[in-house]
Design a protein around this nucleic acid. Sequence first.
DNA 1: CTTGTGATTACAATGGTTTGCAATGGCTCT
DNA 2: AGAGCCATTGCAAACCATTGTAATCACAAG
Lengths: 341, 341
Amino acid sequence: MALKTATLREVAEMAGVHPSTASRALNPESRALVNEKTVTKVLEAAGRLGYRPNSLARGLKTNRTYTIGMLLPDLTNPLFPPIVRGVEDALGQADYTLILGNTDNDPDKEGAILRTMLSRRVDGLVLATARRAAPFVEQLADAGIPVVLVNRVSEDVPWPSVSGDDHAGIGLAVRHLVSLGHRRIAHIGGPQDLSTGLARYQSFVAWMQSEGLEPDPRLIVFSTSFHEVAGAAATVELFARDVPFSAIVAANDLIAIGCYDVLAERQLNVPKDVSVVGYNDMPFSDKLCPPLTTIHIPHYTIGVRAAELALDMIAKRDVGAQALRLAPALAIRQSTAVPSA
Amino acid sequence: MALKTATLREVAEMAGVHPSTASRALNPESRALVNEKTVTKVLEAAGRLGYRPNSLARGLKTNRTYTIGMLLPDLTNPLFPPIVRGVEDALGQADYTLILGNTDNDPDKEGAILRTMLSRRVDGLVLATARRAAPFVEQLADAGIPVVLVNRVSEDVPWPSVSGDDHAGIGLAVRHLVSLGHRRIAHIGGPQDLSTGLARYQSFVAWMQSEGLEPDPRLIVFSTSFHEVAGAAATVELFARDVPFSAIVAANDLIAIGCYDVLAERQLNVPKDVSVVGYNDMPFSDKLCPPLTTIHIPHYTIGVRAAELALDMIAKRDVGAQALRLAPALAIRQSTAVPSA
DNA sequence: CTTGTGATTACAATGGTTTGCAATGGCTCT
DNA sequence: AGAGCCATTGCAAACCATTGTAATCACAAG
């Protein structure tokens, strides 16, 4: 059945009514307007023909596509799949569909993807791309389209955001190490032009101070990206500084893996010689060698909340520019221990 | 600029031409039909107004949405992100957009997602969902929409497929173990109602035989899913059989991790006491403890090829029902060694 | 018997773009 | 000068569903 997709007109014809009546019968909200018996007829005809409303036509008329677009740097980064699933699940509940775009942190790509998304008339946008200065911001604001930020705080931007509470998370990490007895704690920060990189670095400094430990600038190195190789390079740099330390707070798990690699190279044992704390609790961080103590972020929930916010905005519910920060949790595993020295 | 998205009519008006002319000027293929100077005028007007064609209207008219849908069980499974990226990248090249749907292997969900995708008039479909018996097959065939299968062979189905060459991959694993001196090799298979589970099991048996080793049925256990816990349960079952073995070929990396867990519990060392080979070479399998020897599958390329096939089919190029099998590679790491006994 | 009421249903316009066809205008050729 | 051709552009229909408004009908009330 239904070789060609049936049109509303055909359904109406089969049911012996006018297309407009069929339309109303098919739509739950307007269904009350049409006679019960007619509804049955139409529904049956629709079923027999395998009718699927053409969402293009509908969207054209109603100016809503029930589609939202999501931009992220790279789906291959284990951070994102849970977030995307969260978004998708929450969206699915509301019969919304997700369009995905990987930017690779390339502004050109980002612009191009954004353009096609606008061209497709997405009802809303979820931006999980990390760069702090987005040149499109004003265009988007102009377009008057709901936007929700994920994993980055809103800077001078009228949109709500959802993220893990980085300040609290770094606090968890620092205090965990301090409570174990560490005093000379190093930080391998992320790129400082990414909001998470900057925030975690600042929080690190703040928490060290609030613990009464003056952070040594020589024990703070910035990685050029949130990936293993860059993390390893930064760790090498850290050793080059030749300042003793007993623990490392890495800006994310990938960087922590980079630390692992360099530490192993130097025959240093984790956690006996150096304790390492990661950030994100990405999948399989508990399977590393040793299992990584890290800060767990409710990624899935972040995705869900972001989608819900977008949906709220689309429904014209005012959500303001709130910054939703979800509480992190310390996942203590085996990469941290009391300092040996 | 461009508070409200500009319409073609407005662009035409600004350029002082008829909408149809503007349309032709804007579209590269029909651009040749219109005077060069007019084209310039139109293009400029479009630029000034920030015109973005309404793809809904266009799709309605042309019956093409430049959209393809992709169904997969769960994005959170590390297997999929690289595939999805491959699909998305290849699609992006051709100005196509990807719509994603997670089915969780739930037929109802799968049906629902499929319906919305058809309702959205996707130009093609990439099915990476693993279950073997799909009730929608006939409906899709009827709908006459291009479909490409990923990671599952086409059984009685008129569509092309792209996957890793499981037979060759299992061969790599078995021969690697045999060459190390293993003779009593166990297999923890995947669910047998999933095509990959079945294929890998059958290949295991075949390769054992071709190596002159009669596979012991007591050393073959099937996991109820492709996940760690199920893999661990299957490993427990394997030990319960109380038949000696020196190596395990796991149907995928997650199951291999399950093996790791049970082995560790029993104080058995990998690879000294038992060698383990995984399958898929998923991200971070090289960071496991010990780094997992596994079969590398070119996931990204699989995604790219699948997208290209879909694009070909959309372009009415006949691709037939070919089954594209991409060559796997053996990634030797530290979970395999010569047997101790 | 007329008018008013309420419940249904039909009509027609609309959304933005594409495209077959017709119209226009300038030009060449005879 | 008129016929014919080409390049360019305008016209209008079409794609399919939604929705404001008008039409219809049955029935009750006056």
